[in-house]
Simulated scan of single mutants.
Amino acid sequence: MPQTLFSQDRLSRTLGAVKALAGLVLLAAVSWEVIGGDRLRFSPLFLGVQFIVCLIFLCDFFVRWAAAERKGRFFFRNLPFLLLSVPYLNLMLWSGAEPSRSVGMLIGLMPLLRAFLAMVIVTGWLVGNKVRRLLTAYVFTVVVFTYISALVFYDYELPVNPKLHGFGNALWWAWMNVTTVGAEIFPVTAVGKVFCVLLPSLGMMFFPIFTTYVLQEYAPSKTKDE
């Protein structure tokens, strides 16, 4: 029994590392597509990378499903991960449906959410302390989500926002909003406005977690010194 648990844990960690690596590749492909790609159609490179990464996510799901003791429970608990792993954009294009750039980009970002969850889990494995793990995972979440928000904001706002002059401006806008300071670039599109609300909300969540970390790390030593 312990050997079985060890094998399952090793399999889980191996698959997690593969998913995290695939997620980084997908993030790089999305960045290239948004910043330097053709704004009229998706590049074959981006579509190919997304399809391969989605296949990796699907294989991960079915391998872990086959190894699970309670397959029904595993399936329903991990169904959202399965739905996020489907290459919807590739399937739509292969079927002859051609969504607009704005709709297609949102659909294409869905597998990136699955990759993001895998990277958060792997980041948590690298830190032993529970509080440090929480802080590390949250800092990672803030950094990656802020970067993805900048990509989405740039992709949607660039054609219609006269104050946006490059991806550097979009990245600056995202960081100013996540720190709750705000920026002089105001969103015009509905998607931009949604992210303009989400970023400060995420930033405000950081402060209590950071306070908890500081108390956990320094309060015991202070008590001991007294």
Score class of each variant (00 low, 15 high):
Q216F: 15
L89P: 00
I148R: 04
A28W: 14
Q216L: 02
Q8S: 11
P80N: 04
V49G: 11
F57N: 08
F75L: 13
T14R: 09
L134W: 05
V188K: 14
R132E: 12
F81Q: 10
L11G: 01
L82D: 10
D155K: 08
A219G: 01
V160G: 01
A170C: 11
P87F: 10
D60A: 06
T179D: 02
E98K: 13
R64I: 04
L5S: 08
P208M: 00
N90G: 13
P111G: 06
V152I: 15
L40I: 00
V53C: 12
F6R: 10
P200Q: 12
W65S: 07
F75V: 08
G16K: 09
L134Y: 03
G104N: 06
C196I: 02
R133W: 03
K163R: 10
Q3L: 14
N177A: 05
F75S: 10
R39K: 13
M1R: 14
T136I: 01
E98Q: 14
V103E: 03
A22I: 03
V131G: 02
T136H: 05
V144N: 08
P159V: 01
L135W: 02
G192C: 09
K222F: 15
L21Y: 12
G128F: 11
Q50V: 01
V103A: 15
G72A: 09
S12L: 12
F195D: 04
L126P: 03
F210R: 02
N90C: 12
L93F: 11
A219W: 13
R13L: 14
V127Y: 03
E184Q: 12
E157M: 07
W172Q: 13
Q50P: 00
G96Q: 04
L151P: 10
P2R: 11
N78V: 01
L171N: 08
A22C: 13
I35P: 02
R10H: 02
Y154F: 15
S85V: 04
G182P: 08
N129D: 15
G166T: 04
L89D: 09
L151R: 03
V120W: 00
Y213L: 06
A170N: 06
T4G: 07
W175C: 13
I35E: 10
G37K: 11
F167T: 05
F57G: 03
S221I: 07
P162I: 06
D9M: 11
Y88W: 06
R10L: 14
M205G: 00
L202E: 02
M119L: 10
I35Q: 02
T141A: 03
M92W: 09
L21R: 04
G96K: 10
P2E: 11
L26T: 05
F153G: 07
P200D: 09
C54N: 15
L21E: 06
R10S: 09
P80Q: 01
L134E: 03
V191Q: 11
I52C: 06
L27H: 09
G182Q: 11
W94F: 12
S85M: 07
